[in-house]
Every structure is written in C-alpha cells, then in structure tokens.
Simulated scan of single mutants.
Amino acid sequence: MLVAERYEKIVSLVNERGAIRVSELSEIFQVTEETIRRDLDRLEQAGRLRRSHGGAVSVKESYSEIPYTEREIAYAEEKKRMAQAAIKLIGPRDRILLDASTTAWYMASEVPDDTLTVLTNSIKVATELSGKEKIEVISTGGLLAQRSLSFVGPLAERSLESYHVSKLFLSCKGIHLERGISESHELQARIKQKMISIADQVILLADSSKFGVKAFTHVADLSEVDVIVTDRHIPKDVLEQLQDRGITVITA
C-alpha cells in the first residue's frame, strides 16, 4: 500500500469512528506504531485530524455532537467495563445523577434494583431504569437534543437547581491536563456545569481516547473532578499527572 493511500484510509477511519488508537491503526495496516505516529503527525499538520494521547480524533466532529447510535458502539467493551467499575462506587440509598453518555446508559442497564434515587437528563437512562421498581427516577425535562437523546437548555438547567446529589457520573468529549473537561456543544457544556455544581462528588467516565483532546466548549477544570473511571489504555504519564493532582483514577 502506498503511503498516500494509507493516509487516506487513516483519515477515513478516524472520521468514521470519531477517534482511534495508534495500536489499532498499527494492527490494521501492519506497520509499526512509530510509523503510525509519524503518519498522524503529518496528517495533523495538514489539518486532516487532531492528535490525542495514544491516537487521533476527527476534526470533522469537533463542533458537533456524535449521534447516540454511533457513540453507543464506539469503545463499547471499554465502556461496559467502566460502567461496572463505576457502579461499585454507588452506596446504599445514594442520590446520584447520571448524564446522557453511553457509559451512563451502560451503568443504568447494569445497576442492581436496590433503593436508589437517580436524577438524569437522558431519555435512554430513564427508560432503562423504568423497569427497576426500587429505583426512583427523576428526569430533568427540557429541550430535547435529538442527536444525544438528552434534555438540555434553560428548563433542564433550572430543573437541576432544585436538587442536590451525592454523586455525579458524567462523561465528556475531551480531557486535557491544562484545559480540563470540554464538550463539542455549548448546551451540553452548560448543563454539565450545572450538574457539577449540585454534586458532592464528581466522577468522570472517560475512555482513553478522550485524553489529550480539546473540544469546542470548556466545561470545568480538572480540579473539580474527584474520580476518573477509564480503561487500561490510559497513557502512563497522564495517569501519573492526574494522581499527582489528587484525582483518584480507576482503570477498568
């Protein structure tokens, strides 16, 4: 395969998936990871993708939300393991808040039917929990964001002001050591800021492809995060720097 042809296929894969790891590309193209890193560096210089820790993300998706159906299958196994690890952080009779991320939906599908109060802005999460009789489910309502199947906007934000939760479980589009947590859409960023403000403990659910990414809209500094649940592919240097900042990192 010619180098130019490999470049085109790499860009196509990144745009199709939203993000991809160096190790995956190395396996797909049967070249060394160092070769893939050089390819990604050149493609970033050409403005065709953006480098992240351990991989690359699509510039095509930088300013828009990825549809829920696409997010649902991206890094599915990692997200399921992360969800199972996050569930272990829930205590008896907790009042928790789940955002509209796919990992939160996996949590909703796996959480035992025990006495629990769940506040959410996600249609998928609320529907998943509706069959669990012991769990009290509260929906924010608000403006429906169709691509993410979530409620956002002023009504949803004002609804959150009425509550206080012990734990917030949320995800994001990007995590950067300096810029903090970021989102692709302003309304999503604003409601997540409100979520953080009403929670005692903030637990960030993020697979390793999110690290090093600066998405469009800033949500919060990492100083506001207490725990990060991620997968085992998180870069070692990033893991150490997060721990140095006092953030508990759980790898699933």
Rank of each mutant, 00 (worst) to 15 (best):
A46T: 00
A220F: 02
R17L: 13
V202K: 06
A206W: 08
R179S: 12
R51S: 10
A108H: 08
G18P: 06
L143D: 14
H176Q: 05
F151W: 14
E224F: 02
D113N: 15
K210I: 01
L187V: 06
R95T: 14
V225G: 04
H176K: 04
V152G: 08
G54N: 04
S130G: 02
A108C: 03
A19Y: 09
K124S: 11
D231E: 10
G153Y: 11
L116H: 13
I28T: 15
I36H: 03
E161P: 00
V111L: 09
Y106R: 14
H218K: 14
A19G: 13
V31G: 02
V249H: 07
A220K: 01
A156E: 08
S166M: 06
Y63L: 06
T32A: 02
M82V: 01
D41G: 00
T248I: 08
G246M: 09
R51K: 15
L205G: 08
M1P: 07
S197E: 15
L25C: 03
Q241S: 13
V111Y: 11
A100C: 12
Q201C: 12
E34R: 01
L204V: 03
F169V: 05
L13K: 15
F211V: 03
K60Q: 14
E77D: 14
G18C: 07
Y68T: 04
S52G: 08
H185L: 10
R232Y: 08
L49P: 08
R232W: 02
D226W: 01
F169R: 07
H176Y: 11
L116S: 12
R179A: 14
A189T: 03
E186G: 00
Y75A: 15
V249Q: 07
E133P: 08
S52D: 00
L222M: 09
H164T: 11
K173T: 10
V125I: 05
V227G: 04
P112G: 10
L97W: 07
K214Y: 11
I191Y: 12
S209Q: 12
R147F: 05
Q84M: 11
S12H: 12
V125F: 09
L97D: 09
A189D: 07
S182N: 09
V152P: 05
R95A: 12
E183F: 03
A199M: 05
L144E: 08
R81E: 13
N121Q: 09
R6I: 04
E8K: 15
G246D: 10
A156F: 03
A104V: 02
R147Q: 13
G131C: 07
T140P: 04
T35W: 02
S197L: 05
S122G: 10
E157P: 00
E240W: 04
Q45C: 00
A19L: 01
I234V: 14
E24S: 12
E240G: 01
L204Q: 02
V118F: 07
G246C: 09
A220I: 01
T140K: 06
G180L: 09
D114T: 11
L13T: 10
A104D: 06
A104T: 10
L242V: 05
R48S: 11
I250R: 01
V11P: 07
S166R: 14
V165W: 10
I10C: 03
D231S: 08
V3A: 07
S62N: 13
E27N: 07
R71Q: 13
A206C: 09
E70M: 10
E240P: 00
R179F: 10
Q243I: 04
R190G: 02
G91Q: 15
L97E: 10
T230N: 02
S58A: 10
R21K: 14
H218C: 00
Y106M: 09
V14P: 06
